[in-house]
Amino acid sequence: MKKHHPGRWGFVFILPWLIGFLLFTAGPMIASLVLSFTRYDLNTIHFIGTKNYERILFDEPLFWKSLQVTVTYAFFSVPLGIAGSLGLALMLNQKVAGERLFRTLFYLPSLVPSVASALLWSWIFNADNGLLNYTLGLFGWGGVEWLADEKYTLGAFVVMSLWGIGGGRMIIFLAGLQGISESYYEAARLDGASAWRQFRNVTLPLLSPVMFFNLILGVIGAFQVFTQAYIMTAGGPNNATLFYALSIFRNAFEYFKLGKASALAWVLFLILLAITGIQFWASRRWVHYEGEAKS
């Protein structure tokens, strides 16, 4: 009698994904790791050891500039985005007439392709006749060259990132909110907890795993910003929006320095790995899993 191997069937079922992963993710990753130790211009290839990494870390001011731009952007856009998505999810979790309609309406902007939204925001930020300066002008402010003055450009990108607060992140928060049992709130109310106390001591702790998930994805997403900078400012003015991913793209496809671009990509991978590791380490202090005793 044949022996039954349930694991084998599982393997068969995930095989299509596995093949895709090996061919389109793991394969290119290994290839880029190898390329990062070469001088490769799409034509000739030479092994050069760690020269690409030395160049990036010790003799490439634009590497540090792009890292500074990206970290600054992540520092502001991720917390603001998470707070915005959570706030929106809390509002849309209310039992009011037309709640489904509201949820759909707030989700809609995230369906706009990033290229289209970048163009839309270019018009909004137009210093001469844009909506933002027009609105500010009503209060006596305005006249700011949002996308041409390096003092404001990154701020404009942070504001633009809030366009996505109604997207997938909000849906995840909404699902998390709906997963919190009403009994916790009932118990809190019986103890006389105010709405704020309920939010602070019931909602936030029970939502912390969801928030942690969104935080990790948000930071990774912030480090991958490309389309908006490529379309709206091309990294300018004066490299004020030279995001890390744009820098990789330029080195690879504008300057044909594919070895250096691969090294930049691996440095980014290591940075994200370190940040994610720190987040996991720190999460022990603030992320609470339901039913899990905290030490």
């Binding site: 210093a127 001469d128 006749n129 060259e145 041409a148």
Partner: peptide, 9 residues
């Protein structure tokens, strides 16, 4: 200016 130049007007 750069912004006025981007303005089709």
């Amino acid at each position: 200016s750069p912004a006025q130049g981007a303005n089709a007007a």
